[in-house]
Nucleic acid binder design. Structure first.
Lengths: 145, 145
DNA sequence: TGATAAAAGGACCCGTAAGTCCTTATATAA
DNA sequence: TTATATAAGGACTTACGGGTCCTTTTATCA
């Protein structure tokens, strides 16, 4: 499963995208409220995202977070990558250091298929595509819809 | 990904199965060495497994661990269940408390497919089936084969 | 230019998984 | 029956992800 901080990050980015489409630039408090995460922790996560240039931020009065050009086609994989690394896409499901097709663990094939499937999903889905589903009413971001 | 303790548990059980087929009953030290895990920690894990009756143990001289009748058809799911619970088969990949087909998160469909696929694997594969792959030379348990 | 509203950043705390150590219980063999 | 080899168990430590708090920086507005 994805780390909690990664989940917060994805939810936050989707929310920011939705607000950006409304020409708004949400701040930490609004974002934290919407994604149901602690304010201070959300701030840390947003800081990480901006530091890695996945997101833009504006300080001072009227400031907040917004995507800059090219940033919103960010894939979910990109978010996972900066939040928790991508070892979950490489590591053996059995925990073996040296597991490969020449020297497979007993779960190598099946696990590999599943893992690659997940990789395809997170590579093809983007903050943009997820946000669109919500805007079109085909998905929700929290319990309030 | 599976917890480290779950991975150790599965590897340990497979090794025990292989040794049992050779009419042997390995002890903690031998098991730990083979699965490349700390001895004391392996002991803890084996204790958990026997306490939950997934495995038999014999104390004292010449003692060790062995499957009793019916125990070796144990599914991988069964091991996961006692080692770390099964929340990973239920929780939303997006981290939403209330995500379901009526109120789906933007990843609900795709994530569900993957998660169910993983569930099918761990439900159908057993300690016995994994051990057999190794015995048949179609898989390895550690870097030495 | 000063007050204020925001993000950035550093230092710290907390809970849990991972891991260690020492003692106790129990079986076997001499 | 005693010494010994083993698993069981409890108490502890360590590492790390998750989370808080306080200060600093930077922008805007009056």
């Amino acid at each position: 499963m994805l780390a909690k901080s990664t989940q917060y990050a994805i939810r936050a980015l989707v929310f920011i995208q939705l607000r950006n489409w409304e020409k708004q630039r949400p701040g930490v408090e609004e974002i934290a409220r919407e994604i149901e995460a602690p304010v201070a922790y959300s701030a840390k996560i947003l800081q990480t995202l901006t530091r890695h240039r996945l997101l833009g931020s504006v300080k001072g009065r009227g400031g907040g977070f917004a995507f800059e050009e090219m940033q919103s086609e960010l894939s979910i994989y990109g978010v996972i990558h900066v939040m928790e690394g991508d070892s979950c896409f490489h590591n053996c499901g059995f925990g073996l250091k040296s597991c490969n097709s020449a020297n497979p663990c007993p779960l190598h094939e099946e696990y590999g298929v599943m893992r690659d499937g997940f990789f395809d999903i997170v590579k093809s889905e983007t903050i943009h595509s997820l946000s669109k589903k919500i805007q079109d009413g085909n998905a929700v971001l929290n319990r309030f819809g």
